[in-house]
């Protein structure tokens, strides 16, 4: 993998559509089609787009796995083709996506977000959403592309402000961490309260219903447990719904990473890490792996069949 090429690709996509994959902005909000939420309000549900982008992330990862050992010269030819297609007005990513991404795949991840929104509504929470919801910018930060990150989150902060929100509800650990900590290094007056949806549900005394397997093994996503300190929340919700929760050897603050964060630069290592962690989880006695993070979900899902396990997001186990 060539860092210069990766940087260029990401910068071009960011310029085109404000996300590293070149997914059209607005796509991420389509989970809300047929539902009605206001676009302004004191409380905002901001998804950060990660769940919705899973099919694209997955495709991108597979694409890059092919590039992993490709020499930089070939990579730059591939980039040229991409550029050419662009100049002809063809959106290569969505073109590829429309062929590759099945409706079923897309629906699965949209449903997770819908399920979260429905649970919040049932719990009595009123919230607004953004019709052109922007991506959360985390990949730029991870890769050390701080200029891009800064521009991105400044715009995001402005857009959040425009909704009139004083409180933002997040749905994944990376967006939560970004809004709680990272954004503050770049946006001085970002003073909205940020809470994860699980905390909101618990605060409302919500009683979820079991819709998935009766027994699951819990995988604490690194950013949820270690960086946001959300550890008991998913356990409480699962137990309340009547699920039996098994603990793997490495859990809570010592949870093991799914490998997802290096899926773009070191895809083979990333799969190996997923495999190792999944075996650890399976050894707990349950083949039903439950995660609370879109990155864990997609990285595990890719290896699931091979290992004979099933992977669920917590919002596919309860509702």
């Amino acid at each position: 993998m060539d860092l210069k090429a990766v940087k260029l690709l990401i910068e071009r996509n960011a310029k085109k559509s404000w996300n590293p994959l070149g997914v059209k902005e607005g796509y991420c909000s389509s989970w809300a089609e047929g539902m009605s939420f206001p676009e302004k309000g004191e409380t905002l549900l901001y998804t950060g787009c990660l769940y919705q982008m899973i099919p694209y992330i997955d495709m991108f990862a597979r694409l890059l796995k092919g590039f992993e050992n490709m020499n930089p010269a070939l990579f730059s030819i591939a980039m040229k083709i991409n550029e050419l297609a662009d100049s002809l007005g063809l959106d290569t990513i969505s073109l590829l996506a429309s062929i590759e991404i099945s409706k079923r795949d897309r629906e699965r991840y949209f449903n997770i977000v819908r399920n979260i929104a429905n649970a919040l509504t049932s719990a009595g929470v009123k919230f607004a959403y953004m019709k052109e919801e922007p991506y959360n910018g985390v990949l730029y930060h991870d890769l050390g592309m701080d200029d891009l990150f800064e521009a991105h989150v400044k715009r995001l902060a402005r857009k959040i402000k425009e909704t009139g929100a004083k409180r933002v509800i997040t749905v994944d650990p990376h967006t939560t961490y970004m809004l709680n900590y990272l954004i503050k290094e770049f946006v001085e007056d970002f003073d909205v309260e940020v809470v994860h949806y699980m905390d909101v549900l618990l605060e409302k005394g919500y009683e979820p219903e079991l819709i998935g397997p009766k027994e699951v093994v819990i995988h604490d996503p690194c950013y949820l447990a270690r960086w946001n300190d959300l550890i008991d929340q998913p356990r409480t919700l699962l137990t309340r719904a009547g699920a039996k929760v098994r603990e793997p050897e490495f859990s809570r603050k010592f949870t093991g990473c799914c490998g997802g964060p290096i899926e773009s630069l070191f895809p083979s290592l990333s799969s190996k890490l997923a495999e190792k962690r999944m075996k650890e989880l399976k050894e707990s006695g349950s083949p039903c792996l439950t995660v609370m993070c879109p990155i864990c979900l997609t990285n595990f899902q890719r290896e699931a069949d091979k290992l004979g396990v099933r992977v669920f997001d917590i919002m596919e186990v309860i509702k």
């Binding site: 930060h141 991870d142 890769l143 050390g144 701080d146 200029d147 010592f254 949870t255 093991g256």
Partner: peptide, 29 residues
């Protein structure tokens, strides 16, 4: 991975993800 298990393990709570990301940042710039 920037996953931070090292920091949990470390008696000095050294933030390796922060340092490693900073090394990336200096290079990417």
């Amino acid at each position: 991975l920037l996953c931070g298990r090292c920091m949990e393990a470390c008696p000095m709570r050294i933030n390796q993800p922060e340092v490693l990301r900073e090394i990336r940042r200096r290079f990417m710039a």
